[in-house]
Nucleic acid binder design. Structure first.
Lengths: 196, 196, 196, 196
DNA sequence: AATGAATGAGACTTCATTCAT
DNA sequence: CATGAATGAAGTCTCATTCAT
């Protein structure tokens, strides 16, 4: 019984995602150059040949991984829309950052891994700058809504704090007082502190 | 007549530095795995073989680059000692970060390249965490001297801001309002703003 | 349609043997260090890369060659079991040594190549000493069965003679009176001469 | 004060011998291919450049090592001339072989090391075959003097025994009953046993 | 006579990519 | 759609040899 066209497509999508997932994990773990197609094929349980059936080169595969990231990241912004209170929004953003530190590690590693591959520096850079500009725009709005004097600068400061903390924590997970920092930050960005 | 010992030492130091400098630039530009010994040799105008006369492996070369970084970084701390006024110290730290950022982006790229490069993680991680702990200790002292309520947390916040801004700027140099941020930060950490 | 597992296994075995055979010959001819993977690959008509698909290092390849030797040598011992008469056994051993010498010099060269090749000393040494102890045990039994006064020593003497002759012959094939020695040895170890 | 011509020659000879000695030891220890000019230079305490001042290539150095061996070996034959009694001579030869096993190890290793270097196989082979023919001629004379039926064959048998034992012992120094074999061999080749 | 910096060929090894089945 | 054998370029590293001093 020949499979229907739809079935074929489903198989293709599943296998494609399988490969993509493994690639994401491995690239984050061992870097782009440090990960071989063989590694990815083995991790996803397919043959090397099949991987090339889905992605015409390692570079192509990497670009596809960026696509995934974009989707994942989109969902982060959605969470903020669950409330209208800007102070609540700030709390959500901060909490989310700290909760996602593990996921973020993957993200940072991925970004760094790609940021040094001449073949895709441009793509990675553009991806990053697009993400940042989108994120800052959201934050800008929040600070504007709160009414602080320099909303654009303040939003960049908060963004920097969150990414800076992430990097510092990831650089020294054992000693970094991550929980203390979380509480401190939430208090610092609470209504009581911001409006005076 | 053979060269004197001193002559040989001079030759060695010069060539070693030549190679080290090229390595620094290239590692920062293309990452550790992305840079071949050949690249480095060509960039420094020596033969592949000679590079191995000076560094017994690519890994060894990388460790030597770390050594350089450590020296350079040591000098950063010294600058702070030029004054006793804690507010002045904060200004120096901030100014220095921004100046280094513009003047010597390659250090930042290296620092991040190594921090997330799997082969070098251990060394880089230790290097990073040592640097951070040293830097934070200095900052702690400054904030304690100023008399803010949570000096340890505040110093980590400032550190995160500086590193966060650096990353964001390097991710999107064309659009990032780096000067505006510098001024904003200096004002934010000026005497008028901190003591109220 | 992909090949069946069996087909793959067949391909692998064939190619593996091809490489192994070439390695055996070349190691024997030019020594371990003197033989490059390139040499072996070319001799077996495969690419350098493929050789590494089958053996994960040059050292691994060498170990596999030892494996082959072990198999081949095992069969030598079996021949002796074709008779119960100890004098007949002696004759078989002697004849076999001389036959192998002419027919398959490469085994001797390998055996000696490895026995004195620094990188392989440990493995080769263990291999050699295991082989020798096995061989001497068999010979011991034969001389004991014959009833000579010092069977253990006599067996070592015969072993030495056979190996000594082999070396001398291989050192000077053109002039060594190999056939005369064969006949002389067989007579020396015949029933008439041993029992008096 | 300029050195006299004689002094210069003496220096040259000393340095040359120094290098040669180190080369001998290292070649025996690590094989020809396994020994670098650098190793030899360091071991003899001279510079790489100076080594090339004395020997125009590694090959040349190896040939010079052969020359040394020849001299050393010549002295072995002299010992036999200390007596006229053929039985005494046999005893001396056997004793010398066992006493020299350590020196022989060096000799065997050297020979094997060279025997697999295509560039010098011929030289090594010729050297070995010349040595063997000379040695056998001496042994022939001894057995002829004794009056055994097949002196030429008997001399080759004894030669094989001695070399065979050497190799077996060197392959498994820990377990080989070297002393027992020495005593056994001396008895076997004593007057009582040979003449009946 | 003496030094060791410098070169370049070639060794081992990895891996993206292709291809027969 | 699926497999993994096969290739070849490129990377890390070693070493005989040359050469300026």
């Amino acid at each position: 019984m020949p499979r229907t066209k739809k079935q074929f497509e489903e198989i293709r999508k599943n296998t494609r995602d399988l490969i993509l997932d493994s690639a994401l994990v491995l690239f984050a773990q061992k870097g782009f150059k440090g990960t071989s197609i063989n590694d990815i094929a083995k991790a996803s349980g397919v043959s090397k040949g099949l991987a090339y059936n889905y992605f015409k080169s390692k570079n192509d595969l990497m670009l596809a991984v960026f696509g995934m990231l974009e989707n994942e990241i989109g969902s982060i912004f959605n969470v903020m829309k669950s409330t209208e209170d800007p102070f609540e929004k700030l709390k959500i953003i901060i909490d989310l950052t700290f909760k996602n530190l593990k996921k973020d590690e993957k993200f940072w590693r991925l970004y760094m891994s790609f940021a040094f591959q001449p073949e895709v520096q441009d793509v990675a850079g553009k991806f990053m700058s697009e993400f940042l500009s989108k994120a800052f725009k959201e934050l800008d709005a929040v600070f504007k809504q709160i009414g602080v004097p320099n909303p654009k600068e303040e939003s960049k400061i908060l963004g920097s704090i969150l990414d800076g903390i992430s990097i510092h924590y990831l650089s020294d997970k054992e000693h970094y007082p991550i929980d203390k920092m979380r509480r401190f930050l939430i208090k610092k960005y609470s209504k009581d502190n911001l409006v005076l």
